[in-house]
Amino acid sequence: MNVFIGQILPYVAVTVFLGGVTWRIWRWMIPQIVHNITLSPWPKSWSAAIVWILWQLATFWNLLKFDRPLWFGAWFMHIALFLMLVGHVLAFYTLGLQFHILVPGLITPELSLWLSFWFGTVLGLIFLLALLYLLGRRLVNEPVRAISSASDYVHLLLLIGIATLGNIMRIFPEYQVGYIPVREYLAGLFLFQPHPMPDSLLFLAKYTLVMVLMIIFPFSKLMHSFGFFWERWIINRPFHEPARGLPGAGVQLPK
């Protein structure tokens, strides 16, 4: 079992994830943008369009403007998730010294470990709380409940499971796994030189859930993370107005 989860499933998960995402995007690229259906007021140029799209991405501007309660859950959840993903990569790669490596003069290795710990803890808790808030909203808010399918809850529960297990391992010292065994194990995967998984049931459980998430990702609404760009590319594009003025009229606009 450990061999399957530790040494086989990861390759399956990564293949399905990358292959699935590529296949979905491939399918999006087949149909055309038939007419210019940009929303107005439209951006003046392509660069303005890209700035607007990135602004929407970074701030969840539409939710902030039109659905503040949802914005609280959604923005904090996503920003915590994003920072934690980056944090995972950096912390496991540098063994928690990422801040020291980034600003060596100012941050000592000890401070970096401390920062890494607290960033991870706080973001992990924000992530979990935001997910619980979104789940509560989905259950309580009448219209949202009406349009929800079982899979909408499954995604939330899956993320809540991953967040809970991660937080337990982070907060309770007796369950901590530590950077080194994880890095050794992951390095083994990357280098195709199998190394046993860290010996922890919690790690095993969380790791399995993450791989399940990766496998269902391309076949679920989680693809919205890519869909965002493809949709906005259709809906936020420039349009060029024709000149004003009536040809042949007695009263002409000044040139």
Binding site: P31, I33, A74, N141, D152, K221, G227, I234, I235
Partner: peptide, 14 residues
């Protein structure tokens, strides 16, 4: 494509 994206990007946020 606008149809496909409407079919495939909604997260039912409400």
């Amino acid at each position: 494509r606008s149809f496909v994206m409407a079919m495939e990007s909604c997260v039912k946020c409400g």
